[in-house]
Every structure is written in C-alpha cells, then in structure tokens.
Design a protein around this nucleic acid. Structure first.
Lengths: 342, 342
DNA sequence: TCTAATAATACTCAAGGGGAGTATAAGGTG
DNA sequence: CACCTTATACTCCCCTTGAGTATTATTAGA
C-alpha cells in the first residue's frame, strides 16, 4: 500500500537525519505506519471566579488519548473519551487546531497528528480517576490575569527581558520590540486579552519559556523538573501542551464576545454578578457592572427564575437562568461591513 | 523518493477506483494501520468581481494530497505542495478544520484524516498543470449570492422544499422550520451571509443536496454524474468537498470583517471600487459605497500611490495600495465586552 | 436599635460610530 | 454640447456604548 511505502521510506529518511545527535536508533522496521492521531482536550470549568483547566501528570500535561476508529466522528470520539475518563458531562465542544509539526514527532519518527479540542463543563465534580486535577489556567499564564490591574510580572520581568531579547538582534530590533509592545500593551498601548497565543509565542521565541529550551526530539523522554521554573513565567507543560492551552484560552476569550458560551460554564441558575465574575475570570479583566447588565438584558440572554439568592453579602440578588431559546432564535454574529440594506 | 512514490501510487489507486461504480470492496486485511492523513485546500482568488475556487477532477473536487512527513509543519507542507502543483504564490494560509468522520473512511476501513486549509492568492495566473481550473464558488452555492438581491432560487425552490421537509416530521416541524427561517432569512428575518455552513448542512440534512443521497462508504468510488444536478442546487462535489468549501467560504466571510485579509486577493494597486467589488464578491452582498470608503480610510488601511486609473468608465479613480504596516501596528480585534478602563 | 458596609438595581448623560442620503467633480460618448 | 458613469466630499441623525450618580435591600457589628 502506498501509505506504508511512503511511511517506511520516510522513517528511514527521518531516522537518518534525526539520530546524528542522539543515538537512540530504533529498528526502523518496528513501525509500519508513520502516522498516528491523538486527541488533546482543553477542558475548562470556572469555579469561584477561577478559570480551571483539567490536567494530568502532576499538572504538567493536558489530557490526551489515541484517536479510536470506532467513533462516528472526531467530536463523538472526544466526547465519549472524556466522559469515560472524567465523568464530566461536556456541554460544549469545539475543535481548536490540528498540530503536526515535525518537532512534535515522538518516539523515533512516529509521526503524531494531534487534534486539539476545547470543551466546556459545568462546575467541577470529582475529577474522575487517574491523576487528573483542575488547576487555574493563570498558573500557566500568570501574565494573563489583569483583573487586579496589570500584573507586576509584566512590567518588572517580561518587559525588560523582551527588550533585551529585541536588542540581541540589531537588524530585527525594531520589529521585535514592536511585536512585544503590541501584544503586551507596552508604550501606552491598550492590553488586548485575546492575544494569548501571540504573547506565548513571543515569549517562546525569546526563550523565556522553559519549553523553548528543551531539545526537540528526545524531549518526550524527559519532561523536566516539575516546579523548577514555576516562580517565573508560569508552570511548564510537556511537549506543546502549553501552546495548545494558550490556543484554547484565546479562542474562548474571543468566543464569549459573540456567542453565549459562558452559560455552559454556569450552574442552572445564577445571579448576574456570578455571571459577571465568570466572564471576568475568562477574559482576565474587570467589566463595567452596570453596562454588563444592560448588555445581558438587552440581548435577552437570561430570564428571571423568580427566586433570589441571599448569600450575596448585601442586598439579595435575583436568580436568572439562561434562555436556551436564543440559540435557536438568532445566530449571533456581528457585522462590520457597511452592508446596503436597499 | 518518498513523495514521488506516494503520489504515484495514490494516483493509481485513485485512478483505478474512480470509475468502477461499486464492487470495489478491498480485503479488509490488507491494511495494518487505519490512519492516513490528507491535506485539502480551499484556494480562493477574486477576478473581475467573481470569487473563484481552484478545483480539479472536472470541477468536482478540491485539490488535495497526502500529508508528507518531510515538512516542518502542516502549514509548510501545504504551502510547498500548493506552490509546486499550481505555481501560485500563496499569500495567506489558515487552517480550517480537521475531518475524520467514519463516513469518510475510504477504502475499507482505511481511516482518512483530512486537514483542510484556506489559502488566498492574487489574481489568477495560469492554473498550473493537471486538470486544475478556477470556478466561481457560487456555482456550488447559487443561493449564497445576494449581490443582485435574494436569488429567486431561495424563495421559489429552497423555501418550499424546506417547508415540505419540515412537515415530514410532525414532532420536529417547529424546530426544523425555525432553523430554516433563521439560516435563510425567511419570515422577514435578515439574511446573514456568514451562515454558509449552516445553510449547507440544513440542505444536506433535508436531502436536497445530491451528496446526501449517496451511500456512505462506496461513495468514494462513484462521483456521480457531472452536471446532472447543476440546474438545481449547485454543482456537486466528491466526498465532503462541498462541505469543506462551505467551511472555507464561511470562514472567509467572517474574517474579512475584522482582519485585513482582502488585500491578499487584490493586485498591488487598486481603486477603492475594485476593493469594494472584491469584498462584495466574497460577502455575496452589496455594500454602501460611501460608508465603505469611510471605513477603509478611517482605519488607515490604504495609502494613495499618487497615480490614477482611467479605465473606470467615469471619473478617473485614485489608485491605492495596502499599508502593510497596519499588520504590525495593531492587532485588529473587536471588543464586545464592556471592559472597565479604570 | 442604629450605623456602616456590601451589593443590587435604576436611571442619566454625553460622545462617537454607523446607516443613509445629497451634492459636486471629472472623465467618457453621442 | 447634453448626458452617462464613476469618484469623492460632506451632512444628518439615531442608537450604541462608555461612564457615572442615585437609590434600595440586605448583613454585620457597635
């Protein structure tokens, strides 16, 4: 079969090239096909105003598993697999990105295609079996939390280090610093919470992220120390899992603005402040309370349950529930083109 | 070389298989591993106010090829492959979606993962070798072109057929018709040009699309008649290529609203009307001329070249060029959250 | 019991973006 | 020259949106 031949030949080519450095050289015959597919999930929940992500392996990896042919579709495969592993009912699933960089090749030329998904779930039940645990995503991206103002980390650590990095290359200095200023909001620019991935990639490129210092291939075999780099720029993860997480956060931050996905993260009934805190947790920014309520109400996204919540610490708040009908009623998309209505 | 061998063998396999109507049921044993990966490209150009997509196989398929392990990344692989095949310089590339539905399984359990990409290219040089040719995407989605008003097809054909389909199932009647009304803008609702995929999937579900009538598995082997269904609901394509095209169109229609990708489709210099016509071709809707210009200018997306174009049919128009700097200057993303600036 | 703190909720106001239209300029063609 | 076509400038007005003030309903504590 074509694929086999292709793979085998490639194996050899790859094998030849790769092992010039390290010399773990597996028998090239042992692997027949060069391609395997993995599913990687960014599972998000928000509890007590913290955005949580499900992790395994001592909080250094995203849950992932082999793509099984048994399922009708990728989506179904992921859903079944997640629910089996974690017992979490998955409200919302969305494909994120498919990675197949050569650098990701794992054990000896075995080429891995990773299809990543974003999944939203309610609250946070017992996190299933295995060593799965929930962790705030700001543990991996401390510079992304601007809810109490811009973190000192940005100004005190990231800015100077990026400046130094920019100056390392006189030719590209301008360009580098402009990118840094744009993504991190230096030089008086506004912070843009959606640029999560761009910021991570910039830090990676500047080698401020421990993942960037690892060798490419043999890396799979040494996940590195668990907390060695924690104090600085957030917890590291294996492989490119942190990049995938960044992709998921960025996607979610963009999505909440034009699609009512927040409600997938909320309990059945909630107060408006709880909803606001959830949005703020995701966006990493504070929101204008009155205007937020106006936005929610004029879009008719919620309806009163008639009950109130007493445990607010102040005046009791009305409880609301999501009006699921809106999903069918209208497609929420924004126009930016001056479309002629005539 | 691997690539050659792979390609040649695939050619043969495909060639052999394509014209045998059914019987092709290979021995399930022949394949050891179930997974192979394909790249599928939605290549778009706009010429003379028409949005074009590159097709092969008598305009019934999108260009695709095996994923080659030799490249550094998927993106690089696609770029190299496209440029080799078509000699088109690809300005912009974006991953669309990864499909791996069981229904797509081609030859007997061989599981195919298809990673689809959207690519934008300038104008339209000679379309390379092979049987590649450009075709207006509205040939596949005639109901999507609202530039001269809502097509009669929508009101005269689609609406009644969807109504009939809704009424087939008394239980789901309400729901079905609401979906139809929402996506196609029936019952006085506004047309939303971004819902390309939703509309296609609705028509597919209602079996108004010939692709939906094909059997699942042996389908690969019989692409069906070339123009049998043309007069009705647009040209058919093999497998799920039309769905992928719909995904690409939808993504592009959404993207032009918040990211200056249109310019990847324009020649080096252009008049504002040419730019407008290009946007209109993509969006499938007319745009308010004066407000469109205001939008472009206030965003400082273009700068005058100093020259003018005479062949407008009227007063000569200033020529403009895209200000590439804006890409670095600012990240264009829109906020819909009432973020507190204090 | 009275007071301060916390939060919910209602309302106001001004600036700006965006939809829509009018007016004028500058080329062609008969 | 009249008349068509397109380019370009400018106006108007409403509604969204950012920002702030005022009022109400609770709890905690002096």
């Amino acid at each position: 079969m074509c694929l086999t031949c292709c793979a085998v030949l490639l194996m050899q080519t790859l094998g030849d090239n790769l092992n010039t450095e390290t010399k773990l050289r597996p028998a090239p015959l042992s692997i027949e096909h060069g391609i395997s597919a993995d599913l990687i999930a960014v599972l998000v929940a928000v509890t007590c105003g913290e955005p949580l992500v499900l992790t395994i392996q001592d909080q250094r990896a995203l849950p992932s598993g082999p793509f099984e042919l048994a399922h009708r579709s990728l989506q179904a495969g992921l859903r079944a697999w997640v629910e089996r592993q974690t017992r979490l009912p998955l409200g919302y699933i969305e494909q994120l990105y498919t990675f197949a960089d050569r650098d990701r090749a794992g054990v000896a030329g075995q080429h891995v295609i990773s299809i990543s998904y974003l999944g939203l779930t309610r609250e946070q039940p017992a996190s299933g079996e295995h060593e799965a645990s929930w962790r705030s995503w700001y543990a991996y991206f401390p510079w992304e939390d601007h809810r109490v103002g811009p973190p000192l980390l940005v100004e005190n650590v990231i800015a100077p280090q990026l400046k130094a990095w920019a100056q390392q290359d006189k030719a590209r200095q301008q360009d580098r610093w402009q990118r840094a200023a744009m993504t991190f909001g230096f030089e008086g620019r506004a912070w843009n919470e959606e640029l999560v991935l761009q910021r991570y990639e910039l830090l990676y490129e500047a080698k401020l992220i421990p993942e960037a210092l690892r060798g490419n291939l043999p890396e799979v075999l040494r996940p590195g120390p668990a907390t060695a780099t924690e104090p600085g720029l957030g917890g590291a993860m294996i492989l490119d899992h942190r990049r995938i997480l960044a992709t998921g956060i960025a996607r979610l931050r963009a999505k909440i603005k034009y699609h009512p996905v927040v409600f997938e993260l909320m309990p059945e009934t909630f107060t408006l402040l709880q909803l606001q805190r959830c949005v703020e947790a995701l966006a990493g920014r504070l929101v204008h309370k009155q205007n937020f309520r106006r936005l929610i109400e004029q879009q008719e996204l919620v309806e009163e349950t008639g009950e109130t919540s007493q445990d607010t610490g102040g005046r009791p708040a009305k409880l609301f529930r999501f009006r699921r009908e809106v999903l069918a009623e209208r497609a929420i998309v924004g126009t930016k083109l001056p479309i002629s209505r005539a």
